[in-house]
Write a protein that binds this DNA or RNA. Structure first.
Lengths: 644, 644
DNA sequence: GGGCACACGTGATTC
DNA sequence: TGAATCACGTGTGCC
């Protein structure tokens, strides 16, 4: 039932055509270059890409497009096995089941600088089931009108493919009817790679420690330059597991507590030991099975996440038209290596793309790992990942040199891109930090004056008053300043909705208007809130820190102290709606539940409210009633454990 | 009781001195030039002015400083009468009374282009009484720390006076102890003038139709370039009434429904028919009296606004130290024309300033209207305002030409100002519209290349590759583009709080962060609101652009349910730092206080936490210790009532 | 061709 | 003093 692109190439042409016809309502200034080459990015394109991917991701891609596109990845097998592992991790869950919403394998590779880098290995994702996301997630993507967003996503994917992809065909994603949030995340992630310490995977692999973020949305943690995309997809939990050959990244729209067993199983399954079993049959893949077997040990997972899994049959989602979201594919698998780039899997639901950003033409890529660099199992034999990598790097350097011949097209693409507004010699992105204090160094700077200066088009601006040496540095500094400013502009464009025109002045004007609008709305809401909340002392809470943004402490509770004998009674009153337990409390009220006792305990960083309750009515209080009462009010109450 | 500047000039010097001593905490980059001349505006000054006045107002002033400072205003009399009329409109109300918070008369004048323009005629204002403003209003001006805001206001007023004022003395407002919101609005409004169709008054007069805005804060309507200032003053209702000689502007912090009778009475009272009665005694002025008499007909006014007025005695507020706000003057009257600019009225509370922006030195100005242009009553005799204006313009053109000699000082001021960052030849402000489609024309452009080009400092940038003629226009266009961009930057600086550094990149970064912060907060509030009240539909006001930022529900608490016999234990755990009582709890911990009992009770919309505590140590728990513990952790705990 | 927006190299300024 | 920011005039691409 899910529309699937036909593998017939003529059909792809038709799809591309259809894509071109999609009404695209953007300001006139934003010219979309849809020609076959399509490598030219104007500012509008940049802004759109930044808006879709998030600015940090955009910055990252742009800057790394020069410095790291020579990365060459090596696979850990024909990867049917890897692919199936990932795919099984995201098998659509049943009612009481749990599975991840996406799974990515970041594969170790070697960057030009000699150090390692992680690049796209393989990935799989599925859309969240109805009700799986929290309301926080569900509200996320109302920002843009759907059609516009879809169009932008497709254009961005096409741009990415044109810039970073390895073939001049369109990205297969264009054949998709829709690009869902999760798919967008996956399809965009393909174009990323992470050197040592950069981004979530790069840090994870460098440290050798896993990362388990269970509240991405609310914690605001910035696990990766792709955080924006992840958040846009509503991902709440992100797990990064380093193995000896790369990093496994898992994501879920749910809040999933950390599970050491899962970590262990992932670590072993995606290391080279496990990749020895690449001839394993597809069905009954043990990743989830193992988790099922060890159910009792997944202590931190709530019963829902713990997942009493039903036996999964690979590809069973092929014809599953009975999904809660019939409009979308349930699952999307993105392969790294594909002999026939536009092939469609026999199960009909998989769409595979050749790996981007390797600087190697698609068909030549899959054969890298077979003869020249030896069997990956040999290379990855030792225990320590880092040591392995060093071995790897040292051992295959010459082989990679062989493959290092950049096709001319790759260079051309760089030039095309830079010709739009700026040259490729942008600052290497200060990933992770605020870029305020770290954007001075430009590691790729030193090589441009000699080699790239004359081949750069440099059509804009005055002709160089050549001959000086001191001003040259000055020129470079000024260039970087401009580039930084422009990055900020793109970033601003990304956060300001309804930008009237694409030029800077209008952008600033819109941003100002938007800020004023937001401020006004906040004021109004605050006033409203104050009206209905009786205490309303928080107006004065602002006195100390004038930082406009009211709404600091949305609760500035009243504190009342009374001494009774040698004890003191402290009363803290606050508006109900800002209280963490408000949903439960309100559910109690609505269900006419009597609270016999209410206690509060606090650990180092957690507050635990305990309510002993009794039903008001005659019928006994059942777990189901409670769950209904809670979830009727909100379904963000994640873990309703069984009544003992 | 209100400190009033002494008219002794030595005292003014002392005041200026004191003014210089006011601690002013602005970023270092923001140099404040406080020299006596003070005409140089650097970017920091501009940013500050824009921050205080609002960006549109700032833009407007800057651009019109060149094109319209040749406006020459003509009074409609010695204006003791006019002044009293306005003053009576803002007589401090009694408990059940109503009066406006400010009243301005915008006086018709003739601009250089031959068309008319409205410029400051006279004005009067009073501070809102306690409880008069809504809470929306009350929260408004907590934005900046009070001292900083006061300092900025005074500096801005001084800057305005230096730039636009007619004498090189300091603005008398500097003698005020404090500049309240309303006063700031009035004092800044003095420097505005409105050509045909520009700003609220200009539009109002051009159309001949009155304007009655009764919810300025909520509707976000932009009645004038001074909207920001008006909103800052908490003004909710603004009324513009065209008469045949100008526009009367009234404002109130209340929401006042439209009253045809009031409109009518204003219209007649401030037209020339009424200005014939300029010898009328001061007391018992009939404006408000008429309204009192026609109470029953003010149908749209709520009983409070309808105002069962008590008889007012002009000047009665002179010694009224029993106001709800003893710190402020209750009333401030700003005259346009003053023979002795720094004179203080006999009632002690009025401070008068000479009219700014006329391009005519103070002492010469008041005599314009007496002999040369004839009596205003003659000129304004006919009925239609527009016809009158045409007569006026035609009839007195030569007289105005006589006065058109710009004193050299005026020119010097322009140069000083432009010398800071840009030249005065900015685009004539596209007031009222979004400026996006109307900022192409630069009416004052044609006269500068010839006259101003060589006297302009032009220290920056390359030396002109002179000799061409075509690029000169291009240069000019580019200049204007830059200027526009910079205006936007100033504007952005004005709306973004906590700007870390003053450079553009940091500004943009801060703006982006701020937008994200605002979006997040709105999201949180929206989510909260949606959770608690089914009624609130205004969350959907944002529906179109819900904004990106994640950060929904800062609480997604874990809920655990366990049945024990017929009771059920519900546990809600949540992070401590998002808990309303977190500060108290943390204070307990740090003070090693034992919590004997902790209860939670909830009313309809409030949660009350009760802690019975005991000190761990030997010494008894005192209220002081508790308060110290609480406030040591945070000073946002405002109300620590006494231990009973 | 003019209008417009942008990026560029450069000189000045500031710290 | 060197680094950073800025404004300027200019060249250029795109309506």
């Amino acid at each position: 039932m899910v529309p699937v692109p036909n593998k017939d190439s003529s059909c792809f042409a038709a799809l591309s055509n259809q894509f071109l016809m999609i009404p695209f309502c953007m300001p006139k200034l934003m010219k979309i270059e849809m020609g076959l080459g399509g490598g030219v990015w104007n500012d509008g394109d940049k802004a759109m890409v930044a808006a879709v991917l998030g600015t940090r991701a955009f910055d990252y891609l742009i800057s790394s497009s020069v410095s790291s596109n020579e990365n060459s990845c090596m696979g850990i097998g024909t990867d049917e096995n890897l692919h199936n592992k990932l795919s099984d991790l995201v098998e659509p869950p049943n009612a009481s089941n749990f599975s991840w919403n996406y799974a990515i394998f970041w594969q170790i590779s070697r960057s030009k600088s000699g150090d390692w880098a992680l690049c796209w290995g393989d990935g799989s994702c599925r859309e969240p089931k109805e009700g799986e996301e929290s309301e926080a997630t569900r509200n996320l993507n109302l920002r843009l009108e759907d059609e516009t967003q879809q169009t932008m996503r497709k254009i961005v994917l096409q741009k990415l493919h044109t810039l970073f992809g390895s073939s001049d065909e369109y990205n297969g994603a264009l054949g998709l009817d829709r690009v869902t949030d999760t798919e967008m995340f996956l399809l965009a992630s393909m174009y990323f790679s992470f050197p040592r310490g950069e981004g979530g995977p790069g840090k994870c692999f460098a440290s050798g420690k896993h990362v388990w973020l269970s509240d991405l949305l609310k914690s605001g943690s910035d696990y990766c330059v792709r955080s924006f995309l992840a958040k846009s997809a509503g991902v709440q939990t992100i797990v990064l597991v380093p193995t000896d050959v790369g990093v496994v990244e898992l994501g879920s729209v749910r809040c999933v507590g950390e599970s050491l067993e899962l970590l262990q199983s992932i670590r072993s399954l995606f290391s080279t030991q496990s990749s020895l079993m690449r001839s394993k049959p597809l069905t009954g893949f043990p990743v989830m099975g193992k988790r099922r077997d060890e159910n009792a040990q997944l202590t931190n997972l709530s019963p829902v996440e713990r997942g009493e899994g039903v036996p999964k049959i690979f590809g069973q989602d092929l014809n599953s038209g009975n999904s809660g979201r019939p409009r979308y594919r349930e699952k999307l698998a993105v392969r790294k290596v594909e002999e026939r780039p536009w092939d469609v899997y026999s199960n009909g639901n998989r769409i595979a793309f050749s790996s981007p950003r390797n600087g190697i033409q698609g068909s030549s890529w899959p054969h890298i790992h077979d003869a020249k660099q030896g069997s990956p199992t040999e290379i990855y034999a030792s225990q320590s990942p880092v040591n392995n990598i060093q071995e790897l790097v040292n051992g295959v350097r010459d082989d990679f040199r062989l493959n290092h011949y950049q096709p001319q097209k790759q260079v051309t693409m760089q030039i095309d891109f830079s010709g739009a507004t700026s040259r490729p010699s942008v600052v290497v992105r200060p990933v992770g930090a605020d870029s305020e204090n770290s954007d001075a160094e430009a590691p790729c700077k030193e090589e441009r004056p000699g080699t790239a200066d004359e081949r750069r088009p440099r059509k804009r601006g005055r002709k160089p008053a050549n001959g000086r040496e001191e001003p040259l540095n000055h020129v470079e500094a000024e260039r970087q300043r401009r580039e930084k400013l422009n990055q900020r502009f793109y970033a601003l464009r990304a956060v300001v909705p309804n930008i009237s025109k694409m030029d800077k002045a209008s952008l600033l004007g819109d941003a100002i208007a938007y800020i004023n609008e937001l401020q006004a709305k906040l004021k109004v809401m605050e006033a409203d809130r104050e009206n209905l909340g009786g205490t309303s002392r928080d107006a004065s809470a602002l006195g100390a820190n004038p930082g406009i943004s009211m709404e600091n402490q949305s609760q500035a509770p009243d504190v009342d102290i009374q001494a009774v004998h040698d004890e003191v009674v402290v009363r803290v009153s606050c508006p109900l709606d800002s209280h963490p337990a408000s949903r439960v409390i309100q559910a109690f009220k609505e269900a006419q539940i009597t609270v016999l006792e209410s206690k509060l305990a606090a650990t180092k960083d957690t507050v635990l409210h305990t309510f002993v309750i009794k039903s008001q009515g005659s019928e006994p209080l059942t777990k189901e009633k409670l769950i209904a009462a809670f979830s009727g009010e909100s379904n963000s109450i994640q873990s309703l454990s069984s009544v003992g």
